[in-house]
């Protein structure tokens, strides 16, 4: 573990998320080994690495999605603005309202577009009135760039949209609960290049308001959208730093090999 790389970023800003000595196991498999990472606010942090390196597992531990997998165990500490999110006092439901998540496969609920977006605010009681709810839906759809495409058919099922639109709907759904952090697990891997470009543009806009952590196996995407990049390999972070730095001047040999396409 290259401690030097971590300390340099720590000095810049107060991190939104700080992971300290995180280890994650599935039954006997040691998936994440001693990961330390600071994620800065209002920026996009990309987690890259070859498949099976644990980047998705780590991402899912940030909003405790791994809790739904019975065989998964974790040690170490992850804090969100200084609160230990694995603390007994922290409520996982509340946590997930603060740390939203967008998944690899667009997974709108089999409900209308409106109800998809309104789902989160409804369960968290974010709206005081129907008008509030309408407002949230409108805002979220607009921020996700979907408004103009769906404004005339808010009552059609969300599953009827195209792949790219579905993913933006899922992003709108996440924005609607006004989280502090948005986790994105390879959000474009199921999309065509045009839809991908739209989402990437959206991510760039969203980072003005949200802290974004994105897992991607496309290095170009990481280079395009992120400000920070962490390179995962076999469950460890080999290198972490400014994206421009990592892509132009990687310090670790493995990173260089990966970025230049020696393996993947």
């Amino acid at each position: 573990m290259d401690k030097a790389a971590v300390t340099t970023v720590q000095d810049l800003v107060q991190p939104t998320i700080r992971a300290t000595n995180v280890n994650i196991y599935y039954d006997d498999t040691h998936a994440i080994k001693d990961v330390n990472l600071d994620i800065p606010p209002k920026a996009v942090t990309a987690l890259i690495g070859p498949s099976g390196c644990g980047k998705s597992t780590f991402l899912r531990s940030i909003n405790r999605m791994n809790d739904t997998i019975p065989s998964c165990r974790m040690t170490g500490q992850i804090t969100l603005y200084g609160d230990d999110i694995y603390d007994k006092k922290i409520d996982v439901v509340q946590l997930r309202a603060r740390v939203g998540m967008v998944f690899q496969k667009p997974n709108p609920f089999p409900k209308s577009i409106y109800d998809n977006v309104a789902y989160g605010p409804r369960i968290h009681g974010l709206a005081n009135s129907d008008a509030d709810l309408d407002n949230i839906v409108f805002n979220s759809l607009q921020k996700s760039g979907l408004w103009d495409e769906v404004k005339d058919r808010l009552d059609t099922p969300g599953t009827a949209l195209s792949g790219g639109q579905r993913q933006r709907l899922c992003i709108a759904r996440t924005i609607a609960i006004n989280p502090e952090v948005i986790l994105m697990d390879e959000p474009c891997s199921a999309l065509d290049p045009i839809a991908t470009a739209i989402i990437e543009e959206l991510i760039t806009e969203l980072k003005e308001r949200f802290t974004i952590v994105i897992v991607t196996h496309s290095m170009q995407q990481a280079a395009r959208v992120s400000q920070k990049t962490a390179f995962f390999h076999l469950g460890k972070i080999l290198e972490f730093g400014d994206t421009s730095e990592i892509f132009t001047n990687p310090k670790v040999e493995k990173t260089k090999d990966y970025i230049t396409g020696r393996y993947g």
Partner: peptide, 14 residues
């Protein structure tokens, strides 16, 4: 699909 459950839990639903 598990993805629907994940989506809902990911939004903080019980």
């Amino acid at each position: 699909p598990q993805s629907l459950r994940d989506a809902s839990y990911g939004l903080g639903a019980t």
